[in-house]
């Protein structure tokens, strides 16, 4: 019992093929339908159900429609303040991005372990968040170059830069620009992974403390449990904040592409 209670906090991030799909391949690349893919599917499904439920198109909205409309209104407002009128056309993308990340984060935090189902937080994998950040960055590049052609490079030389400083500033700005997709993807991945590791470590304290006898349980297990409750609340906040930050930064970058400086 004591030997089995050793908890590996990283095990929750392990990717496993499901339904014997381990050998599925496209052009020689493995595309196994993993637990990660399953939770992407669940997030998509949940999102379709959620937004679909608010699609009654009533003039006087019910609660569900009100909830969906508050989200679309929130995204619309965010684009309007950060990008301006030109941001209206990005509402579908930013909404999908924000809601997909939000649902993924929340689904990963659901206490489904009680029912024997272990939720998988695919936003804790940079291979998943990287796709989203590269997607956002690509849109910024495509829009920027399509709209401003080579003039888009003026983004890297802010107004009022002395001529002598321009080359150095250009390099610095270029690097900071190119770092964006990495910072965008890594921020989400790190925040989600850190929270889940922390919860797992604390829960291992509760379990090993309980196994080691009542005194250790009272000294280490109980405080850890209380702390876990608090950190769970914090993690809920982080779920929302990280989705918001991802969407907000994408908006800010889109503003650069749409309006330069």
């Amino acid at each position: 019992m004591a030997a089995e209670a050793k908890v590996d906090p990283m095990h929750q991030f392990a990717i496993e093929p499901l339904f014997g799909s381990g050998n599925w391949a496209i052009a020689g690349h493995n595309v196994a339908f993993t637990n990660s893919a399953l939770w992407m599917a669940i997030a998509t499904l949940a999102l379709v159900v959620f937004v679909g439920g608010g699609l009654k198109r009533e003039t006087v909205p019910g609660r569900w429609q009100m909830a969906v409309e508050s989200f679309t209104g929130f995204i619309d407002n965010m684009l309007a303040t950060n990008v301006g009128p030109a941001g209206k056309k990005y509402v579908p993308y930013i909404f999908s991005l924000f809601m997909f990340i939000l649902f993924a984060n929340f689904l990963g935090l659901m206490p489904l372990g009680v029912f024997g189902v272990h939720p998988f937080t695919f936003t804790s994998h940079f291979s998943a968040t990287g796709v989203l950040s590269v997607l956002s960055f690509s849109i910024v590049l495509i829009v920027g170059f399509a709209k401003h052609k080579l003039h888009f490079f003026s983004l890297f030389v802010p107004h009022g830069t002395p001529a002598a400083m321009a080359p150095a500033i250009f390099v610095v700005e270029l690097i900071s620009f190119l770092v964006r997709p990495f910072s965008l993807g890594l921020r989400l991945f790190v925040a989600m992974m850190a929270g889940h590791v922390l919860l797992e470590v604390l829960s291992s304290f509760v379990i090993s403390g309980g196994n080691a006898g009542p005194i250790l349980f009272a000294v280490a297990g109980l405080p850890s449990f209380v702390l876990m409750v608090g950190i769970c609340a914090l993690e809920m906040l982080v779920c929302g904040i990280q989705a918001y930050v991802f969407a907000l930064l994408t908006c800010v970058y889109l503003n650069d592409a749409e309006n330069l400086h």
Partner: peptide, 15 residues
């Protein structure tokens, strides 16, 4: 590859 593939599939569906 699987991660990127399924991410594109499901985020694409969502979008």
């Amino acid at each position: 590859f699987s991660q990127i593939f399924w991410m594109l599939v499901f985020f694409g569906l969502t979008f």
